[in-house]
Design a protein around this nucleic acid. Structure first.
Length: 501
RNA sequence: GCGGGCGUAGCUCAGCUGGUAGAGCACCACCUUGCCAAGGUGGAUGUCGAGGGUUCGAAUCCCUUCGCCCGCUCCA
């Protein structure tokens, strides 16, 4: 465990040292749950997003793109259920300092022959009925009461009135009086549109990008020349006022999502087929950007834990140093969202199917992932420390496609003008095509190590054979540190083939 | 939100029975260097997280606050 903690610490420290991730507004002491991406970070992020957009939108005939606004008509969030459902009423026990979700804390009055002996409380579980009964019998025995214990009717804490809530004992201490009234936490950030700050101007920063897609469904069907099955893809920022942001950029309050709503015909057969298909597509994509098989996993949400609108949900997980967690959720959402928006907007969102001559609300498969989580997974996957001639080396083994800098160009030594000039020439040529870097400071070995730490896949060195011999340059491989000589034309083809797989 | 630990140079950290700051690495310049963190010379760098208090004097003691890590709690 200790080594795993220090691994994430090393990655956080490297992220800052090399300019991948900074704490937001750090000079003012930072702000919990917000992050800034530095020169290398912004490139890596962009490459991840570009790879996704390229593979999921441009190279597919059945997916189109969208960029919807962050602030939308607040009715969108009424329809989606976020205003009511994105709230978790919480109860604190002042004595034991434990916190419970009010809807998971159940209580019942203990009645013996119509006489109250107080209340029992239990935390929601499969055995809670039996647990409550046991506790109630204990109370009865202590009170030395004869008579028959009436059947307990367990009610969740948030449905009790304040007087009743006061009598509920804390599950931790067994005594009443230490529980607070339920307090609401809505995870949506509120803001106001326009100069007036009254109730009518209240609006929200979107907690997910998906609703922007659903809200635009009709626009795209009407204009996009799309036919079922088809997807609408979007990359964009979303905001959640998380109670406890944790684990570096894994759970932050401002994050970026890459989501597809893939619309399909209704029917059990249909969604099962497409759901499975998308799990395969998405897993392959992660491997394609360099996440290794041994880090990736799948987690099928059990039926009883699904959100009320979902038919199924499978997570693609990644083994982070702090545990295995969700990278992407692939949900079968039925037609819940379109149904809701049709109801709240009063506009028909039905799709007319040419083949069957039928009108219906399409169902949807939603592959949804976080850019920042993917970023962290790529970083964790790439991070390694190896040894070269007995010296420790930190190296980020990014897949060339996502690597922030593709190549470093070096004159072997800087005090020979011919080498320097030739290296700068090549640098400006490569610069037109890729993000590359030029470095002439220090010994060549030091410069190699510098680019290793930044995850640059290719080190290109101009030596005396380049300027006095056949003109060939040397290309060093970051992972093996082996070098091959090739001509300049070969270099372009070589890099191209490695980067654009 | 609660409990515990912590915040000193870009990074890792030392200094903390109060006397206004150091090391290693990194960085910049020049010299040197014919392939994997070589060497030399010189240089820049911190109102010691922030605010307040005690004191002649605070990085060091006290309070508040912000942030980070861990555990609870939460997590479309």
């Amino acid at each position: 465990m200790k080594s795993e903690n220090s691994l994430i610490e090393e990655i956080v420290s490297l992220s800052k040292r090399k300019g991948f991730v900074f704490q937001s507004s750090e000079i003012y002491g930072g702000l919990n749950g917000f992050f800034d991406y530095g020169p290398l970070g912004v490139e890596l992020r962009k490459n991840i997003k570009d790879a996704w957009w390229e593979d999921m939108v441009r190279r597919r005939d059945d997916v189109v793109g969208l960029d919807s606004s962050i602030i939308m008509n607040p009715k969108v969030w009424e329809a989606s259920g976020h205003i009511d459902g994105f709230t978790d009423p919480m109860v604190d026990c002042k004595e034991s300092k434990m916190r419970y979700r009010a809807d998971q804390l159940f209580a019942a009055e203990i009645l013996v022959d119509e006489e109250s002996l107080g209340w029992v409380s239990v935390i929601e579980s499969e055995t809670m009925e039996a647990d409550a009964l046991k506790k109630a019998e204990m109370v009865k025995r202590k009170a030395a009461k004869q008579g028959e214990l009436q059947k307990l009717s367990l009610t969740s804490y948030d449905e009790l009135n304040p007087d009743q809530q006061e009598q509920v004992p804390s599950p931790a201490t067994g005594k009443p009086g230490s529980l607070t009234p339920p307090r609401e936490f809505n995870m949506m950030f509120e803001t106001h549109v326009g100069a007036l700050k009254d109730g009518s101007s209240k609006s929200f920063l979107r907690p997910e990008t998906a609703q922007g897609i659903f809200a635009n469904f009709k626009n795209i069907v009407d204009t996009g020349r799309v036919k079922l099955p088809f997807g609408i893809a979007q990359i964009g920022k979303a905001f959640r006022n998380e109670i406890t942001p944790r684990n570096f950029i894994f759970r932050s309050r401002e994050f970026e999502q890459m989501e597809i709503e893939y619309f399909i015909p209704p029917g059990e057969e249909e969604w099962k087929k497409f759901h499975q298909e998308w799990i395969g597509v998405r897993k392959a994509w992660f491997k394609g950007i360099g996440l290794t098989d041994d880090h990736l996993g799948e987690e099928v949400h059990p039926q009883e834990k699904l959100a009320h609108y979902a038919q199924a949900c499978t997570d693609i997980t990644f083994k982070f140093p702090f545990g295995e967690h969700e990278l992407e959720g692939i949900a079968a959402r039925g037609n819940f969202d379109l149904t809701q928006h049709q109801k709240y907007s009063g506009k028909s969102l039905e799709y007319f199917d040419e083949g069957s001559k039928q009108k219906f609300l399409p169902h949807v498969i939603e592959p949804s992932l976080g850019v920042d989580r993917t970023f962290l997974a790529v970083l964790c996957s790439a991070y390694s420390v190896d040894e070269i001639d007995g010296e420790k080396r930190t190296v980020l083994r990014f897949h060339p496609r996502v690597a922030p800098i593709k190549a470093g160009i070096f004159p072997l030594v800087k005090n020979k003008p011919a080498l320097v000039e030739r290296a700068k020439q090549l640098y400006s040529k490569l610069q037109r095509k890729w993000n590359v870097t030029y470095d002439q400071g220090g010994a060549i070995g030091r410069r190699y190590r510098r680019i290793d730490e930044a995850g640059v896949p290719f080190g290109i060195t101009i030596d005396f054979d380049t300027v006095e011999g056949d003109g060939s340059i040397t290309v060093r491989d970051r992972d093996t540190t082996e070098q091959v000589r090739m001509s300049e034309e070969e270099l372009f083809a070589y890099m191209d083939s490695k980067i654009s797989t």
